[in-house]
């Protein structure tokens, strides 16, 4: 890294005695040419305050653990270049929105993952190891739909961007529903009835207002809004089919 003499003004959220209450602490960080937001946070922790808590693992946009609010927007910090998000030489770094804070920049991801389970974002196998492989052609329409939703890294950037998540504690959120959509399109799965039930309830896909904050910010360029629209159609179509039997 080559330092170019400029100094970045960085304001970082620090927890107080009570994790949710805290205040901003200011730091001066030397600017580098190719510097990510995570580099800045790491530099502060290594050179100015070893007690600063934050989370990361892969540093290459695979693991989904490094997301934070940067100047008010949710970002994967390991792949967000400082020059893309800097405003007048300044950066405000906060823990991810819509999740409880454990300490400093570390959030408790439990509510996020609990909602994946609640949205039936889990695979229900129909075959055992003794059966032959299911053969699904790459040009199968359901497979194409599942493909579009499958590259999620569980970073919760979409969860932090969504105002429905902020205002409705029961809302399952874009990532969980996006996952559900990939499983709805999985021909091998045996849990579809329970899945559609789970996501039709209060807090499910029909709570989404299609604001598209999730799609706007998803670092992997997934489109949870389109997945949720798919779920809306699927649940409505199923309702009419059930009506015919009743």
């Amino acid at each position: 890294m080559s330092a170019d003499g400029r100094i970045l003004k960085i304001s970082v959220w620090r927890s107080g005695a009570d994790a949710d209450a805290g205040s901003f602490q200011d730091f001066q960080v030397p600017a580098n040419q190719h510097q990510t937001v995570l580099d800045v946070v790491s530099w502060i922790q290594q050179n100015q305050d070893p007690s600063l808590s934050y989370r990361f693992a892969c540093r290459v946009g695979m693991c989904g653990s490094c997301a934070m609010m940067v100047n008010g927007k949710p970002r994967w910090t390991c792949r967000t270049h400082v020059k893309k998000v800097l405003e007048d030489g300044f950066m405000r770094i906060e823990p991810l929105r819509n999740l409880p804070v454990i300490k400093d920049l570390v959030t408790d991801m439990d509510p996020f993952f609990d909602k994946w389970i609640a949205a039936e974002g889990v695979f229900h196998p129909t075959k055992s190891r003794h059966d032959a492989f299911a053969s699904i052609k790459p040009d199968n329409p359901a497979r194409i739909e599942a493909n579009k939703a499958v590259e999620c890294i569980n970073c919760a950037v979409c969860f932090a961007a969504c105002d429905v998540v902020a205002n409705n504690a029961d809302y399952l959120g874009p990532a969980a529903l996006n996952r559900t959509w990939s499983l709805v399109n999985d021909a091998r799965d045996g849990g579809q009835a329970a899945r559609l039930q789970a996501i039709s309830q209060s807090g499910g896909c029909h709570n989404c207002h299609s604001q598209q904050g999730c799609t706007n910010f998803c670092p992997n360029e997934l489109n949870p809004t389109a997945s949720i629209a798919g779920l809306k159609r699927k649940t409505i179509a199923t309702m009419f089919k059930r009506g015919q039997h009743a």
Partner: peptide, 14 residues
């Protein structure tokens, strides 16, 4: 308007 809301489709929603 909060920064995470500054995109055309959020404004359309509002």
């Amino acid at each position: 308007i909060a920064p995470h809301r500054k995109h055309a489709l959020w404004l359309a929603y509002a």
